[in-house]
Amino acid sequence: MAKMVSRTVDLRSDTVTKPTEAMRAAMAVADVDDDVLGYDPSALRLETEMARITGKEAALFVPSGTMGNLISVLVHCDLRGSEVILGDNSHIHIYENGGISTIGGVHPRTVKNNQDGTMDIDLIEAAIRDPRGVLVYPTTRLICLENSHANSGGTCLSVEYTDKVGELAKKHGLKLHIDGARIFNASVALGIPVHRLVQAADSVSVCLSKGLGAPVGSVIVGSKSFIAKAKILRKTLGGGMRQVGILCAAAFVAVQENVGKLEGDHRNAKILAEGLNQMKGVRIDVASVETNIIYFEIDESSKLTAEELCNYLEEHGIRVMQESSSRVRIVLHHQISESDVQYTLSCFQQALTGVQVQNGI
């Protein structure tokens, strides 16, 4: 039987946030209609606001970021056998069930992601197919970036880098999509408005249920013609919903109230990373912690394996994500307090050194 603990600190992901009272209240009184018919006022309000924030012509609410990315890729790669260039460590390539291939017939051509989440510009250009080889090659139509880059520890792509990729895409007649699941985290960390960070992109997907803390959903943004095609694909994929304004009302509150809390998430992540860096048995690059995601390695000299550490933390109410036999992920969010961070560090200290910890610190 699992040990009973008096507190839980859930650091598995920023997707575990619970709706706030303000969100629940907004859901209860949301003005709704049939969104498939295009008349849900709460959905329209959210989409209008997200288009404004991102500097794009139009927006569309979708049930998930995976669907948002899939729809975006399929709109840009509307012929089966098209090819998309994307990072070998990107979310679309690794964690989205290969949907662009299995559903869309789109061929992924991967380029190595650097530690900061970028791909070398010259390697991107080298991956673009020669159109003269159309009889034997897939046709390159799209480049995808991810900002912030989750598997690189939440690192942020600079506006200068994104602009350069955008220029490259235009040079070769390609489109640029940004998986901006945590684009607000990148915006806050870099001190640059979202619309400027994605200015070079033809489309962007923005998750509302990660750092922003909404219960459900993402938004994709782009030109009016892009969104018109996206709406058809959303229906095809089963993402057309009726009185979706109940969800959009909560998401609107999240956008209005929780962006300002992301800086605190980043600060707590840095405190936690710096604390872990002081402990023997842990290897962590503190400088790479730019937003709310932390990765660390369990050193071979440690008395514990990653699995044993995670199990010990679970017994003390600390939930983290084991990535491999030695790698662990931690993600901060707005429902993790500074007290939670200190309690987490004390539990790590006990696990790694045997120093006693008092539950409920």
Rank of each mutant, 00 (worst) to 15 (best):
A25W: 04
S337Y: 02
T20N: 12
L74T: 09
T48S: 15
R182C: 04
L37G: 02
E274A: 03
E315P: 03
V206K: 03
E314Q: 11
T139A: 13
S218E: 05
M4V: 13
S209T: 10
T305S: 15
G275H: 09
I330C: 03
I336T: 11
H316Y: 15
I318L: 08
G360D: 15
R109L: 10
L11R: 03
N311K: 15
E263V: 08
K3C: 00
I220D: 07
K112F: 13
V159H: 10
G217F: 07
K112T: 15
I293H: 03
D35K: 01
H76A: 12
A150W: 10
G173V: 00
V253N: 03
T118A: 01
C347E: 09
K112N: 09
F184Q: 05
V136H: 09
H316E: 13
V136A: 10
V159Y: 09
M321F: 13
R283S: 07
Q199W: 09
N268V: 00
S288E: 09
I128F: 08
A58G: 00
M4C: 03
C347F: 01
H107S: 06
G98Y: 05
L142S: 03
H316F: 12
S205H: 05
S205N: 12
A51Y: 02
S72N: 13
V73S: 13
S324D: 12
D285M: 04
H91F: 11
T118C: 03
I124S: 02
S225L: 08
A254F: 05
L86M: 15
Q256N: 12
K229P: 00
K112Q: 14
S301T: 13
L11V: 02
Q115Y: 13
T155G: 01
N359I: 08
